[in-house]
Design a binder for these strands. Structure first.
Lengths: 153, 153
DNA sequence: CCTTGAGTTGAAGTGAACTTCAGGTTGCAC
DNA sequence: GTGCAACCTGAAGTTCACTTCAACTCAAGG
């Protein structure tokens, strides 16, 4: 019980639904050993991976990008705190960019509230050019969906 | 040519694809008169509505919520700048909240980079409780998708 | 009149991130 | 050894915000 976690335990501890965990596994974000009876047993280090995934999602990173980032972790040795720190640092920039963008939006919105214009031409508000374009459809919200540690059924 | 806009013109001026404009109409976000030959003719005021929609999306509001907001505009008289300003102000709070949340995420991320922990238990980072929970699946990214004034075909 | 570009429709497809479901298997406590 | 919660799988469904498609009509210039 100290060695590894069942999917139910990992779900409870991480607050991520079991179905999501299986989904993450299919995408190669996390992995698990199997028991003789084919049930998943997660190493405790997977908790950290799940945490990283959820945090990254809040930064606005897609699962595919997260997978790529996680792939850059050393696979030979167990990732050290420094490895995680380095990985997290790469999101820092994205987060800053996003915050700056929203700040600009707020300022512009204030300006527009002042004049009530909402003019597409004059406002810097509506300027599709300089956004860090989230490619294609399906880029996701910064906020996590609320699903909690549901153990359905 | 000064009275009303065709869908092509509205698309060009707003930077929103024609298909999206028709979609918005189905959702009740915008509306149009029709010519004898059943073609849409948009009043110039629709430009402002489209602007409001896109700006609101950047704030992270769903189309359904935007529709509800637009429905609160006076339908008898033409919406005044003040009406638009009031409407925009309601998003201000959301935007602030979102910015604050991301700021917190950044600070926490810095803290975690420091210690490399990414601990679900200790970090304030991973705290599903206090988010302004984007209900259900499908809440969307703050960033607009880049589609530009495409006039396909 | 004819062509051509712009417009129309409803239905179906897309992509991300999941969830749900049906039907079956495991693990553990009693 | 039996009962039952917890687990397994693949396939299909869901939501949002669109886009794409096919098949058609309209408007305007030559």
């Amino acid at each position: 019980m100290h060695e590894s976690l069942t999917i139910g335990q990992l779900s409870a501890r991480s607050g991520v639904a079991q179905s999501a965990l299986r989904y993450y596994e299919r995408l190669g974000l996390i992995s698990a050993e199997r028991t003789g009876g084919n049930q998943r047993r997660y190493a405790r280090t997977e908790l950290r991976r799940v945490a990283f995934v959820r945090i990254s999602q809040q930064v606005g990173i897609s699962l595919e990008e997260i997978r790529a980032a996680l792939d850059s972790l050393p696979s030979s040795r167990a990732p050290s705190p420094d490895d995680w720190a380095a990985l997290s640092r790469t999101w820092r920039e994205r987060l800053d960019e996003r915050i700056k963008l929203l700040g600009k939006l707020r300022d512009d919105l204030d300006g527009c509230i002042g004049c009530g214009c909402l003019s597409l031409q004059r406002c810097t508000l509506y300027n599709p050019g300089d956004t860090l374009a989230g490619e294609g459809p399906g880029a996701r919200l910064v906020l996590p969906r609320r699903d909690g540690p549901v153990t359905p059924s």
